[in-house]
Design a protein around this nucleic acid. Structure first.
Lengths: 165, 165
DNA sequence: ACCGGATTGTTACCATATAGAACAATTGGC
DNA sequence: GCCAATTGTTCTATATGGTAACAATCCGGT
C-alpha cells in the first residue's frame, strides 16, 4: 500500500515534495545537520545521565580548575543564569564542587571530583564514537574543512560588544 | 587517542580559558555556528512575527500547494504533533488555510493565502540578507563547500528505515 | 571610610523547539 | 464489516536559551 502519490492534489506531479527555498539556505541545512548531531549526542550522553550542557560545563571545569560560573557562561556563550542550574545538577550528583574563590567572596571556584573526571573520560570516548558515526560519510580532509568553515562562522560578530575586559 | 591528559588548554595559563576538548568536536563547533544562525534568524523573523518553524512551514506550503500536515512533518523532519501548532498559528493569522483534502477526509490540503505569499516574499528577502551577514567572512566558494558538507551530514541516517517508497 | 556603580550568583518566569503517548475519525486491505 | 494503519489533535515532558529582578560583594572615586 502506497498512497503518497497524487491523491490530494499535486505536490510536484509525482509525489515529490519540493523544498528548494529551504534547501537553498545554509542556515536550514545547518539546522538539519545540527539536529542530527544533537539528537544522536543526546542519546549517547543519556547513558551517562549527561546532557549537552552538563557535559560542556564538565569539560570546561576539567580543563580550567577553579573557573567561576560567569567564566563558564562567557566561554560557552550562554547566560550566567543558565550555568547555575547546570552546576547545581553537577554538584548534586557529586561530579563538581563549588569552592569559594579565594579573593572574591561573590564567585565560586569550580572543581571536578574524581567521579566527575571518571565520568567525563567515559563520556568523551562515547562522544568521539558518536561524531565518527555521524560524520562517517566525510573523509578526514572533509572533516577538517568543515571544522574550519564552522569556526569561521563561529567568529562572526554582527553587532555585539566585546572590547571590554 | 589522547584526552584530558595533556590538559591542552593552557596557552596563557593566567587569563585564558581553555576549551580544547570542546573545540575539537565538530558537533560543538556546529552548535556554536548554528546558534549564531538561529539567534540572528530569530531577530530578523521577529519583524514579521514569524519564527523558524512557521517560516519553514510557510515555505513548504507555498512550494507544495495542497500538501498535508504529515507531509510537512516528514519533509521537515519533525513530528506531526508539531505541525498542528504551527499550522494553527499560520491559519489564525490568515497566512494559510486548511482545506479538506479531496479523497481523504482525515487529511488537510494546506494552501497559502495572498497575505501568506506576500509575507513570505518579504521574509525570504530578509533571510537572504541575514545569511549574507552571518556568512560575510566566507567566499562564495566557501559557502558552496559548507553547503555541500552540511548536506552530506544531512543524509547520514543511523537508524536506517525509510525505504518504503 | 563611604557611596554608588559594576559584578557574581541566584531565582523566577517566559519563549522556542522537539519528542512521545494517547485518542478520535477515517481509510483501506481482507 | 473488521481491524490495522493513517491523519490530525491534545497533552505532557524535556532541552535550551533569554530577561528581569534581587542580594551579596567588590571596586573605584571622593
Amino acid at each position: 500500500m502506497k498512497q503518497t502519490d497524487a491523491k490530494a492534489g499535486d505536490e510536484k506531479s509525482d509525489g515529490e515534495i519540493g523544498q528548494a527555498d529551504l534547501l537553498g539556505l545554509i542556515g536550514y541545512n545547518m539546522k538539519r545537520a545540527y539536529m542530527l548531531f544533537y539528537q544522536d549526542l543526546k542519546q549517547n550522553l543519556a547513558e551517562f545521565d549527561l546532557r549537552q550542557r552538563t557535559f560542556s560545563v564538565l569539560s570546561l571545569v576539567i580543563e580550567n580548575p577553579n573557573i567561576s560560573q560567569i567564566e563558564v557562561a562567557r566561554t560557552l556563550g550562554i547566560e550566567r543564569s543558565g550555568t547555575v542550574v547546570i552546576v547545581d545538577e553537577l554538584e548534586e550528583r557529586g561530579l563538581v564542587v563549588r569552592e569559594r574563590a579565594p579573593g572574591d567572596r561573590r564567585a565560586y571556584a569550580l572543581a571536578v571530583t574524581d567521579a566527575g573526571k571518571a565520568l567525563y573520560r567515559k563520556a568523551i570516548k562515547r562522544i568521539a564514537d558518536h561524531e565518527d558515526r555521524i560524520l562517517s560519510d566525510l573523509s578526514q580532509s572533509d572533516r577538517k574543512d568543515l571544522m574550519a568553515l564552522l569556526r569561521r562562522i563561529h567568529m562572526v560578530d554582527k553587532g555585539g560588544k566585546q572590547s571590554e575586559d
